[in-house]
Nucleic acid binder design. Sequence first.
DNA 1: GTCTATATTGCGATAGAC
DNA 2: GTCTATCGCAATATAGAC
Lengths: 207, 207
Amino acid sequence: MENKTRAKLLEVATELFATKGFSAVSVRELTIAAKINISAISYYFNGKEGLYEAILKDQLAPVLQALKEVQHHISESPIARLTLYADQIAYIHAQRPFLSRFIYSEVTNPTEYGRPIIENHLSQVYQFIDTTLREGIAEGSFRKDLNVTYSAVSLVGILNFYFIAKPLVYKIFPLPEQADNESEYVAHAFRVYLYGVMNSTAKQGTT
Amino acid sequence: MENKTRAKLLEVATELFATKGFSAVSVRELTIAAKINISAISYYFNGKEGLYEAILKDQLAPVLQALKEVQHHISESPIARLTLYADQIAYIHAQRPFLSRFIYSEVTNPTEYGRPIIENHLSQVYQFIDTTLREGIAEGSFRKDLNVTYSAVSLVGILNFYFIAKPLVYKIFPLPEQADNESEYVAHAFRVYLYGVMNSTAKQGTT
DNA sequence: GTCTATATTGCGATAGAC
DNA sequence: GTCTATCGCAATATAGAC
C-alpha cells in the first residue's frame, strides 16, 4: 500500500497520454482523473515531463527485452527468427494495449524526450529484420529480387498497423471481440507476408 | 497577390501541425514562423481550430477524390482495382508529403474535429478493400482461407506505413534519395502483398 | 506524503487604431 | 488587411502549512 497515489497516477496518465497525446493532456486533468492532489506530479516525477518519461520507459521496456531475446536465437533459421519476432509483437501488444499509441505518437509527432528513444528502438528492429532477410535470401528461402529495406518496412507495417487501427476497424466491421485476436491477426498477417517474400519453390510448411 | 498572408500561413501551419501535432503548436509560434501578425489567424480562419480544419480538409481532399475514382472501375478485375488503389496511394503521398502525419495523428490521438472525418475516410477505404477482396476470393484469384477483415488491415498497413517511417528509415539505412521512391516502395509492397494473398495456382503476370 | 495558496508564464482571442 | 495592446484564462510549478 506504499504508493497508491503514485500507482494511480501512472495508471491514469498512461491512458490519457496514450489517447490524447502529451501536449493535449494537462496536469490538472490528470490529477482530477486520478483523484489526487495537483502537487503529487511534481513530488513523484518532478513534473509532467518526468511523468511522461517514466511512462514511456515503462511501456518500451518489453520491446527492448524482446529484441534481446530474439538476438539469442541466431542459430535458428531466418524464417524461425522472424516468426519468433512476430509472436513477440503479438504478445507484447496484448499485454500493453496502449503501447502502439505511444510508438505511433512518437513517430508522427516526436517529443523532445521520446524521439531519441524511439529512434534507437526502431533502429534495432530494422537492423534485426534487415540482417535476417539478407540471410534468408542468401539461404534461398526468400526471393532474391527483394529490396531488403522495403521488405523490412513492409513487415513492420503489416504486423503493427492492426494495433493502432483496431478500435476503428471494430467500429467499421463489428466482429465478435474475442480473447486473443492480437495473435490471430499477427499470425494471419505474417503468413501473408511470408507467402509474399518466399521463394515460390519452397512454399509449404508455414501453417 | 491577393492573399499572400493567408497562403503563407497555410503553408507554414501545414508543416508545423504535421510535425508537432495540433496541441503542441501555438498561434504565436505559427505567426512568428510565417512572419505575419498574430491577429491574422482569427481574421482568416476564425481561430487556431478553424485553421487546422481548413488544412485537414485540404490535405484529405485528394483521398476522397481517389476513392471516387476507384469506384468508377467496378467493371475491372479485383486485382486491377487494388492495383489502381495502390497506385493512387503512391501518387497522393508523393504530392502531399505531410498527409500521412495528419492521418496517423488523427488515428492515434484524434482531435474533436478530425475524428469523424478520418473515421469516415478510413471506413470508405476498408469497405472498398473488403468488397474487392471478397470478389477476388469468389473469383478464385485470392486464397479462400483469407480472413477478409485482417487482409484489409494488412493491405492498408503494408502500403501506408512507409510514408510515416520514411525519415526514420533513411536515417537508419542511408539510401540514395531518389526521385520516385514512393511509387517504388508501393509497387514493391503491393507485390509482396499480392503474392501473399493470391491463390498459388495463379501466380504469374503481376510484375 | 498531502494539502492550499499562489507565483509566473504562456495561451488563444479580439477591440480598436491605422 | 494589418497592426498594437491587452483581456481573461489556463497552463505548470512550488513554497510552506499540516
